[in-house]
Design a binder for these strands. Sequence first.
DNA 1: TTGTATGCGTTATCAG
DNA 2: CTGATAACGCATACAA
Lengths: 336, 336
Amino acid sequence: MNIGEIARRAGVSRSTVSYALSGKRPVASSTRRRVQDVIDELGYRPNATARALKEGRTRTIGLVIPPAGNRLTHMQLDFVASVVDAAARVDLDVLLSPSGEDHDRSFERLVSEGRVDGVILMEIRLEDPRVGRLQAAGVPFVGIGHTAGDQGMSWIDVDYAGLVRHCVRHLADLGHRRVALITRSAELVAAGYGPARRAGEGFAAAVAERGLDGIEVPCGDDARSGQECVEALLRGHSGLTAVTTINEAALPGIQRALADAGLAVPYDFSITGVAARTWAEDFRPPLTAADVPALEMGEKAVALLMQRITAPDAPPRHILLTPPISLRSSTAAART
Amino acid sequence: MNIGEIARRAGVSRSTVSYALSGKRPVASSTRRRVQDVIDELGYRPNATARALKEGRTRTIGLVIPPAGNRLTHMQLDFVASVVDAAARVDLDVLLSPSGEDHDRSFERLVSEGRVDGVILMEIRLEDPRVGRLQAAGVPFVGIGHTAGDQGMSWIDVDYAGLVRHCVRHLADLGHRRVALITRSAELVAAGYGPARRAGEGFAAAVAERGLDGIEVPCGDDARSGQECVEALLRGHSGLTAVTTINEAALPGIQRALADAGLAVPYDFSITGVAARTWAEDFRPPLTAADVPALEMGEKAVALLMQRITAPDAPPRHILLTPPISLRSSTAAART
DNA sequence: TTGTATGCGTTATCAG
DNA sequence: CTGATAACGCATACAA
């Protein structure tokens, strides 16, 4: 069933049906009524593909997520959910594309076949070929995270350097002298993953500033890795009394390793870091942490993208979020 | 840039470009070469929208996920990831639609605007109006889970009744006499959510069969609810020595409540249930559980959907998965 | 081996 | 206030 069928049954022309639906030109109320009745009876809705072809826009945005193999973290999941939600609120559909490798058929379809009006690019690398690809193709996009060179793109990011610096200062204020940063996987760090790099910078800066003894260790995105990581840390670094982490998936393992070592949090050992709020609250004891506002980020990313789409020539915008550190119960004065 | 531009630059007609690309009719190798050179130079890819309009199919499938508000469980997340992955392997894109309420704009767009070739419907209810809606619209679809009446649809599901029955029998064999089933939220059970209902049936059957004392309790999908749930259970039912659960999100809380009560797993208390494999393995001690094969389900769901799309009149197919119970370390003989 | 012409379902322009 | 008609970009039946 199509607009012609409706027109035929209502005894009007196709354009009248179209205008009755869009309201873009006056239609006699009697005519409109007749048309609407037919539409209601048959449950007609304009075909999205034909409309997209005619209008030159798809009312769809692409969301490029990390490849499916790597399990998404809660933070990432919350972000995806909030993007889908924010998009739905403005009647936009979301096309999912798992991408990461340089050559990716799904990503290529997205950028060069005109399937979407714009793209949200998650998990951006400091050097990310996809950014150039999108720019060359002229597809509006916003990055979650930003590249090293910035490249005149719009992005929204979390100030990992600042947050980790804050965390370390907080630990220093509590008297901790020997602290570790548990970061993301060695592969990710090597690949130039921004948050990991910047967290490392913030850590180094704060450690230097306060004259602490700081150890940075990579850690896989799962509980087991977290456990092994802390076990190794405790084995190799006596006098360690606190860790800060940006690896939320490792938290359950971190917790476990400490419990196994007979260390009570926060009396014997302090933990702090950057994590999704529910994750921090579910931790035991509740985690003193910067709560990544994933939901807010999703909303803002969609808003930013809409701006890029409607005003491609406007100067790109950047949003750097620095959520406050929520003081909960996982940090305390260092034992003397 | 479009096919006409390529044709012009290569000095051939549009159809020749089209055929050079599709290979659906012979093209002189010299001509093909010339066309290909222009295409490579300009990086041309046929517009997906125009192609979809012409061909009558979008090469896109819809994935209807639970509304964003409710955080997805790991099982669901794994499923989404595997669907996206399986779809990408056959060059299909995935359109995400958060739906649940009866009236949902995003869902309506999906079914009535021809945006997708077919739909995978997650989190199906025993009575689910969306099933009728899809059938009325003539959109091929497969359900994850099935309705009460079956309604001649294709679906893939996990045999929750059978799995819970197995779990309870296992506990009975170990000498447990008083056991509880921790199911999903009261709302979900009330709404006629299949897995919860069927788990309840399996539980009741096994309890009766073995002459046990069984308690079924609803529980929200989060750690906190799990904790409160077990606390209440321990308070109200002395002599309880084991629980089985289909609520994987509650597991961390269940674990915590038992630890707080000074009960060691599995020596003082046994736990078993249905969960994603990584979840079960990350549990401490590793959970004796039926590992829901979410990845396999995603792949099979896509395959099933492809069949519905290519052969709409073929009889619908059903796949009921009964993963084996992996014996790990969370169950032991009841203390006497 | 190649070119021309048509139609997919819309929206919007141009006439009336 | 309404109707005929031309695009949007592509694939394909029909002609040559």
